Simulated assay, not measured.
Amino acid sequence: MKFPRRGLYAITQPENKTINQVVKDVEAALRGGARVIQYRDKNPVNASQLASLLLEICHTYDAPLLINDSIELALTVGADGVHLGRDDGEISAARRKLGPNAIIGVSCYNDVEKARAMAVAGADYVAFGRFFPSGTKPLAAPAEIISLERAKQSITVPIVAIGGILPENGGQLLTAGADLLAVIGGVFDHEPEAAARAYQALFNQPPE
């Protein structure tokens, strides 16, 4: 499974939901056009079961499932890859455990130099953010749109933007250099299929 070059990158919102509801919501987002799903769960109850179900539904829609933070969970369920934050280990360690075909993404916050280094080290994509106020990470340090412009000049792997992104503000991030928009609440606080379609429409519009 390859990481897409463009599109909506939907991140799960499992808090206070049953496993069945999370799977139903993710399938709705995929129907709406989400190209990637990341399983993010800060208080997991049965992570292996849920991740396995999500992997099955993602592959039905030809979309990769990535696991946030946990190389071990990605290995256990056979996920397509992992997303590494600040304290989640090195790309080389993830690559050794998950194999040469795994998708490995890295959070780079607002650090273009780190993003360049991670791309050289083998990251399949780099992520910047948060760009707008975010209910999921209200205390996260802000990223600047100019960082996307700078990154686009020298980084060839896909660039993901995250943080408070709505259909109303996502277009400016795509214009600046983002290839994918990563969204949690903007998709899963609403009816996920319709919300995903609203984001996916941004990728069909001419640049601003």
Rank of each mutant, 00 (worst) to 15 (best):
S48D: 11
A102K: 01
V120Y: 03
E149T: 14
E15L: 07
D62N: 15
G7C: 08
R5D: 13
A141G: 12
G85P: 05
L181K: 07
A178N: 08
A10N: 06
G177C: 11
K97A: 14
E113P: 00
S154N: 03
T175S: 02
N169E: 11
L139G: 00
H190Y: 08
T156A: 14
G81F: 09
P206M: 02
G177M: 03
G171N: 10
A79G: 12
H59C: 09
Q153A: 09
T136F: 12
P133R: 02
A28Y: 06
Q200P: 02
D179A: 12
L73R: 05
A119G: 05
P207I: 10
A176N: 02
T12W: 11
V126L: 12
V36A: 03
N16S: 05
I19S: 09
G170L: 08
V36D: 06
P133E: 02
M1S: 15
K2Q: 11
V26T: 06
Y125Q: 05
V160N: 05
A94C: 08
R130K: 15
V112G: 07
P192C: 13
P4C: 06
G78Q: 09
G163D: 04
Q172M: 13
A196Q: 10
L54T: 14
Q13N: 12
A123K: 03
V120P: 02
F131W: 02
L173S: 01
G85L: 11
G78N: 08
N101M: 10
I165A: 02
A93Q: 11
V36N: 05
K137G: 04
L66R: 06
P133W: 03
I159Y: 00
L180Q: 09
D25T: 03
Q38H: 09
Q153M: 09
K97W: 08
G177H: 08
A28M: 13
T76K: 15
I11D: 00
G185T: 09
L180G: 04
R130G: 06
E193A: 15
V126D: 03
G163K: 07
Q38Y: 01
G33L: 04
N43K: 15
V187Q: 11
F132L: 07
D41C: 11
E208I: 11
Q21H: 13
A201F: 09
S70N: 01
I67R: 09
V82L: 05
G163I: 00
K24E: 14
N46P: 00
E191A: 14
V183K: 01
K114L: 15
D41S: 06
T60E: 13
R35G: 07
S134I: 09
S107E: 01
E191K: 03
C58P: 01
A29W: 05
L84V: 07
P100K: 14
D62Y: 14
T156L: 11
A79M: 12
I71R: 03
H59F: 12
G186H: 08
L54D: 10
E15T: 06
E168S: 13
N43F: 14
D87F: 12
Y109M: 12
A94N: 00
G135D: 13
D111H: 10
F203T: 13
G33Q: 00
